[in-house]
Every structure is written in C-alpha cells, then in structure tokens.
Simulated scan of single mutants.
Amino acid sequence: MLYTRWHRYTQHVQQHVFLTAGRQHINGVQLYYERTGIGKHAVLLIPGALGSTLTDFGPQLKSLNKEMFTIVGFDPRGYGRSRPPERDFPPNFFERDAKDAVDLMKALGFSRFSLLGWSDGGITGLVLAARNPELIHKMVVWGSNAYVSQQDLSIYHAISDVSKWSARMRKPMEDMYGAEVFPKIWKAWVDGISQFTHRPEGSICMELLPHICCPSLIIHGEKDPMVPSFHPQYLLKHIKGSRLHVNPEGKHNLHLRFATEFNKMVEDFLDE
C-alpha cells in the first residue's frame, strides 16, 4: 500500500514538474506560454526585446526550484510563438505587454505572483508592479531602465544594423523570425524605444516607480554594454525598499552566462 501511494505521488509530481506548453486567448491574441513546477509560489518570466521563453529563459525554466515555485514563461504578442499578429510598437507597448501578462496569469488561475523581468521585460515588470500592486508578491529586474537618455539612444542606433552583429548573436533571432523578418522587427524596436526621448526626461515609466511597493531586487552586470550603470542606480533610488546586486563580470545576459549563481540568488530572494 505504501509503495502504491508513493508511486502515485511521484507520478503526480513528474506530471506537473515537466514543462507543459500551450496558448491562451488574451486581449484579442493567442499568447504562447510554458509552465513548469508544482510550488505554491507562482513566478512569471518576462522576456526582453524580441525575446521568448525559448531564447531568453532556458536555464530558469529548467533549473529553478520546481517544488518551491510554479514557473510561467510567455512570449509577448508579436514575439516568438505569439504570432500572429506581427509585432508593433505604439507609444503604450510596455503598458500593453503588462496588461497582457496580468491577464494571462489570471487566465491560468494565479491571483498573486512574483515576476522576473529581463531588459524590456524588466520595464514591463516595472509597469506591471506599479499598476497592479495587489497582484505582485516580489519582483526581480535586470538590464532594465525607466527612461531613455541620449547615451542610450546612441547605443540603440549603434546596434540597429543587425548585419554588423556576430553570427552567434544573430542566430537565435534568425532561427526564430527568419533572416529576412528579424532585421525588420529589430529596426521597428529601435524606432519604438527611441520614441521615448520625445517625452519629458525621456521617461518610459519614471513616474510609476514610486507606486511600486513589493520587495524588489535589481540586478546589474557591471560590463553590460546595453544598459549604463546609472539606470540601476536610478531604479534603486526611486523604488522604495529595493536592493541592488552588481555582478562584476556580468553583461546584459548575465542570467544565461551565470545561470547557476543567478538562479540561486533569485530563489533565495523569493523565498525570504
């Protein structure tokens, strides 16, 4: 009898620990998502520009503690496997992504969750946490900014021509979008993120930061070529009670390059 019960339990655990994938109709589009884990603490992963669960969060979906957390990754509308529609960048695209993310988690049955947001996904996370304080347990963001400076604009324009990227950097995006479509979407993103320079102080969501009340961990790679160090310092100053961890060797994709260290830090923070 004991063996039978244990066998049924392990079958139940295995069934839910293995990654499952699906699509959910949200705000007029079909959003692709992946889900793994059986923990009571739900965690949403929000990818960066043109990103997806496949390109952005492999080590997290694979290795974050699946007994402690239920982990959900999704492809924002127009990205990855959430196409159609083709991606566009209206002035409210971060707000739109934040609403999509909230409504997806509600549709999946989560009334409260934590979030991990990388790069653009971190910006979406900032908006989401500020707009929905009652929903967010904790937040981790890295490679993110609340405004676009002239220095940022120079960085974006310097990388707008993907033909100048290394083949290794292009490959994941070309595999996802195709060699002809990827440059067009990337150029549209550069134009989309650049439009914030027309706002006062280049604000993307500066005015929202004081409304974030969840415990927040900001992570920064000291060698990040995309996000100057004044951005995490600004977030630290304006998000009440937040803390900052700097990885001295980290670049923009530090969660992939230093996945074991990153995952352990995140697990410890979420479990506090």
Rank of each mutant, 00 (worst) to 15 (best):
S144N: 06
Y3P: 00
S149V: 06
R199Y: 06
A146P: 02
V127P: 07
Q14W: 03
Y234P: 06
P215D: 04
T4M: 10
K184Q: 14
L61C: 07
C213V: 09
G250H: 02
P85T: 11
F113C: 07
H16S: 08
Q11W: 03
I219D: 02
H12D: 13
H16E: 04
D97F: 14
Y156Q: 08
Q15L: 09
L116R: 01
T124K: 11
Q233E: 12
I38D: 01
G73T: 10
V148R: 03
V190G: 04
V227T: 03
P59K: 08
Q151N: 06
Q195V: 10
G37N: 05
C214I: 06
G143N: 01
L208I: 03
G121K: 12
A98K: 07
S229N: 04
P225N: 02
F230I: 07
W186L: 03
A107P: 06
W118A: 08
P215H: 06
D120E: 15
Y177L: 02
Q24D: 08
L256F: 15
V227Y: 00
K99V: 14
I26G: 10
S194V: 03
L254F: 04
T124G: 14
D100A: 14
G78N: 07
A179N: 01
F110Q: 13
V17A: 06
L104Q: 11
F269P: 14
L2P: 02
K66E: 03
S119R: 10
L116H: 08
E180Y: 06
K40E: 14
F89R: 11
G121Y: 11
V227Q: 01
I155T: 05
N132D: 06
L128R: 08
G117E: 14
R81I: 01
R5D: 15
P133G: 07
C205G: 02
V227H: 00
L44D: 08
H238M: 04
T4A: 12
T20R: 14
K251T: 04
L61M: 14
R199F: 07
L235Y: 02
E249S: 05
I71V: 15
I218D: 06
L256Y: 13
I46K: 09
K237L: 05
P91F: 13
L19K: 12
G143Y: 01
V227E: 02
N247E: 13
